[in-house]
Design a protein around this nucleic acid. Structure first.
Lengths: 356, 356
DNA sequence: GCCTTGTGTCGAATCGGTTCGAGCGCGCCT
DNA sequence: AGGCGCGCTCGAACCGATTCGACACAAGGC
């Protein structure tokens, strides 16, 4: 069933059918109705490939997911779902492309085969080969996170530097003097992964501004590692009363470690950070944190890309999101060590130990 | 840059370029080399849409993800990643399609626009409108989970019935007499979601076969609900010593509830079930469970689909996976209430309380 | 020397749409 | 009445590939 068959049955030419469908030229009401009836009876839909070939656009975008497929975090997952939903509203389909290692062929196939009108690139690095390849190809793309030359290209990103800084200020305001950062894994930092770098920068700068004693450590992306990290951290730096985390996957382990060490939250240790809302709410007690606005991020990325596709010569826009800190119940002023009996605190009755 | 331009530069016809690339007819070695050199210099790749139009196939498959995009579980996420990886090995691209509600237009667009050669359908229900639509369209598809008429169509699935049954038998072998099933949410059961139904069937049948006292409850897919479920369960049925779970998302909450109630695992309560490997290993203590072989599932689905695409008239094959139970450390023989001091057990020294 | 066989290449049709220029018939204005 | 403009429709070109039948030319057999 193709457009020619419809034309024949309706007794018109192929172009008239096309115009009746697209509305790009006027078609008399009588003819239009007749054509639509035939189409309805035949259950006809235009072939997407033929249309793409003729129009020169595919109405499809590619979403390039991070290299190691196995390490997709729930936050990334949420982003994928968000992009699909947002694209659906723009009448765009989403082609998923893995990247890295043997899967680079897939990426290359999609780009150079002109299968898509634009690309969303997840998890870009400060130096990113895929971004360079895309720039060379001339295909519109939006990066999630920004590359080293932040001025060029479109991107949407989270203001990790500012957000982590806000967390530090929040702890400082409460009176904490010794704090720590639990960052993403060391190799992320080494390979120039923006969020990890900027989290560290923001932490260091804010801590210095408030003259805090600050310790930053990296932690692999899983609960077991989180448990070990917190144990080692508190053993090595017993004075620490506040923790800022940029690593949500480690949270369950952190919770376990604190419980096992008998440190009450927020009685003895305050915790905050930048994590997905889901993780913040599942923490015990609910985490005071800057919730990562994952579906906003997805919406904005698709919006930017759609705009760029329709006018490739337009300005290269950037979006830097900075969600507010949601106050829940994992932060409080630090205990005064001298005045407070640890036994009391571990039983949860730390009210009388609070400082001013 | 298109095939005509390459032909001109190499001084041959367009068809010769096509044959040199596809190898479907012989081309003299000299000509072939010349063409390839020109292609290399120009950085030419065939336009995927034009090729699809001419060949009548798109080299793309659709992956239809569950209705509510927001509630994708990590296990589903893993499946998506697995499908993309497997498809990449077959030189297939993956188009992601949401389904349900307003997103059904996207599904319809992909199917009737002939954008794909085949479809993988996640989370099918026993009665499934999308499966019916696909059958009607004649497009090859593979379902994850089977529909009510299991004999027709291709599918891959997990043998939930058998696996949950095995878990029951495992507990029975250890000597447990009163056990419970923590199933997926009630509405899943009501809407005819296969895994939930079959988990319940398998549990009931195996418990009956071993003459166990069995309680089955449903639990929403999150940690908070898991915590509440376990508390209520143990309050209402204090005799229970073994729990089988089909709900991995509830696991962290279950762990918290047991800890708060002071029930040692596996000292006082044994836990097992069917859950993703990741969840099993993150549990404390590591969970004895039938690990869901998620990437196997994805591989087999893609394999079946690829086979069906290349020979649509072939047999409709099914795959039912039944992974073995991985013994970790969350199950043990139940304590003899009369002989055992709960205080001892809660300190982890339950060795002297074991039966037979 | 002619016919056969086979190798390598070409031209044209095809896939299923979109789009542009042209043409036809009609009503209106002068 | 003739000319003009307008509304509607048609035919043909085009997008960029694949594929089939045909043809040119060289080698080999009689």
């Amino acid at each position: 069933m193709n457009i020619g068959e419809i034309a024949k049955r309706a007794g018109v030419s192929r172009s008239t059918v096309s115009y009746a469908l697209s509305g790009k030229r006027r078609v008399s009401e009588a003819t239009r109705r007749r054509i639509l009836r035939v189409i309805d009876e035949a259950g006809y839909r235009p072939n997407a490939n033929a249309r793409a070939l003729a129009e020169g656009r595919t109405r499809t975008i590619a979403l390039v997911i991070p290299p190691a497929g196995r390490s997709l975090t729930p936050i990334q997952l949420g982003f994928v779902a968000g992009v699909v939903a947002a694209a659906s509203l723009h009448e765009l389909d989403v082609l998923l492309s893995p990247s890295g290692g043997e899967h680079d062929r897939s990426f290359e196939r999609i780009i150079s085969g002109r299968r898509v009108d634009g690309v969303i690139l997840m998890e870009v690095r400060l130096q990113d080969a895929r971004a360079a390849r895309l720039r060379e190809s001339g295909l519109p793309f939006v990066a999630i996170g920004h590359t080293a030359d932040a001025g060029t290209g479109c991107w949407v990103d989270l203001d990790y530097e500012g957000l982590i800084g806000n967390c530090v200020h929040h702890l400082a305001d409460l009176g904490h003097r010794a704090i720590a950062l639990i960052n993403r894994p060391q190799e992320f930092l080494d390979s120039g992964y923006g969020p990890a770098r900027r989290a560290l920068d923001g932490f260091t700068a804010a801590a210095a501004a408030r003259s805090l004693t600050a310790t930053a450590i990296c932690c692999p992306d899983d609960a077991m590692a989180g448990e070990a990290c917190v144990e080692n951290l508190l053993a090595a730096h017993p004075a620490i009363t506040g923790i800022v985390t940029a690593n949500e996957a480690a949270l369950p382990g952190m919770e376990r470690a604190l419980r096992r060490l008998g440190r009450a939250v927020p009685g003895q240790i305050s915790i905050t950070g930048v994590v997905g809302r889901h993780w913040a709410e599942e923490f015990h007690p609910p985490l005071t944190a800057a919730d990562v606005p994952i579906s906003d991020l997805a919406d904005r990325a698709v919006e930017l890309l759609a705009e760029r596709i329709s006018s490739p010569a337009g300005p290269e826009r950037h979006v830097l999101l900075a969600p507010p800190i949601s106050l829940r119940s994992s932060t409080a002023p630090p205990v005064q060590r001298a005045e407070c009996d640890p036994a009391l605190a571990s039983q949860g009755s730390h009210a009388e130990c609070l400082t001013s």
